[in-house]
Nucleic acid binder design. Structure first.
Lengths: 227, 227
DNA sequence: ACCTGAACACCGTTCAAGT
DNA sequence: ACCTGAACACCGTTCAAGT
């Protein structure tokens, strides 16, 4: 009797599974941020103990990588197959990737170390290769270029999203501004002279310039043959 | 009497100070790695409680940034003022910076978020500006280029050093290799075709190519005027 | 002003024991 | 095979109280 009752009051606890765990982890991240997606908190959410998760998940890094792979499904890959300037299409996809990371600080930081390898990650890589092909970048060079471009986007997201979203980190921007502005012209003449330029520019401009530099460099710089 | 004795047996506990704390933190990092440089462990080392450190250090991020600033003193800036090809001198300084980060995994990861602003950090920036000036890169563009170059080097170190030094992370390289090799040719034709190229190449070659791409791009890509 | 003990609110991971 | 309670070995940070 009591058993039936408790079954009615809340649905039978669903069996644990890796997809179920990852889905719950994504939900938890949306609600509280990736930092709060801990084994213990996630287990609470799933009505079990933390030890149970280790049947499906190697460790916390593995869990976070799985969350990232899931989120990569949201990257807009449509520009890969559209027409128009290939450089613009390339930056469009990268910007979309960046946007996903940017929304969830911590995700970018984990992306730097835990690279996802699921279908969404592969689709992103494939799309970038498609666009580089349209730009007549030779295959082997394109292979390395994909790495470089994702590397740059990920690092930018890791840096910016931490700074923007973490309240305490705004302080560090301030620290840097003060340090640059008060740099002694005798010891650091160029910093002194360029202080405004070093600090200047909205993030968007700097990002656009970064993409332009990379694409231009990729187009002009040959790769050594494989060994 | 007992007091005199105990004073002889170990020297009087030195007063706490920020420099003293940072020195101890660096020593602890050399011995056990940055992950183990925690407030509690560091306090133990200094014969006090963790609460005492908060008089001199804002939080853990601040502490780690101070450690990094200290380590930047080891970057070899000599190439900035030598003769020879400016591109080679630029990569020499960046390689030295990278070497410092590479020696201590975790340092690079913290460098991405906690940027040091002390004299060693400024000296590094100034040196890069000196070299870019030799390469006739216009000042405002050089200001942004410094950011881009350090950004790239830091991200590379964060990625590589974690992978190389963390035993469990080698697994992830393997995961990626398996994923790329087993990618369906139908769904991911280009990944399939380029799988060897995507995985190929020693880290050193890819790094050298990355620097070449960036420098080439910097030389050729104009910066929008400041707003 | 500086320092501290103690507490609060957490972590990841393992392992023996159960089903 | 899967799941779990309990334990081990840690964390950062705050705060009232002392000197």
């Amino acid at each position: 009797m009591t058993q039936v009752r408790s079954r009615r009051e809340r649905p039978a606890k669903p069996a644990l599974s890796r997809p179920g765990i990852v889905t719950a982890a994504v939900a938890l991240m949306r609600a509280e941020g990736l930092e709060r997606v801990t084994m213990r908190r996630l287990a609470d959410q799933l009505d079990t103990g933390p030890a149970s998760l280790y049947v499906y998940v190697r460790d916390t890094a593995d869990l976070h990588a799985a969350v990232l792979e899931e989120m990569l499904g949201q990257v807009d890959l449509a520009p890969a197959h559209g027409g128009g300037d290939w450089r613009e299409r390339l930056t469009a996809v990268l910007r979309s990737y960046l946007g996903v990371l940017f929304e969830h600080p911590g995700l970018a930081r984990s992306a730097l170390v835990a690279r996802p390898t699921g279908p969404n990650a592969l689709a992103l890589i494939e799309s970038l290769l498609v666009i580089l092909e349209d730009g007549d970048v030779p295959g082997p060079r394109a292979a390395w270029a994909v790495d470089l471009l994702l590397h740059f986007a990920t690092a930018t997201a890791a840096e910016q999203s931490t700074r923007t979203n973490d309240p305490a980190m705004g302080q560090q921007d301030e620290d840097m501004a003060v340090a640059l502005r008060s740099a002694s012209p005798a010891a650091y003449p160029r910093i002194s002279a360029l202080q405004d330029e070093l600090l200047a520019g909205p993030g968007a401009d700097r990002l656009a310039w970064g993409f332009a530099v990379l694409i231009d460099g990729i187009v002009h710089t040959g790769r050594p043959p494989a060994t």
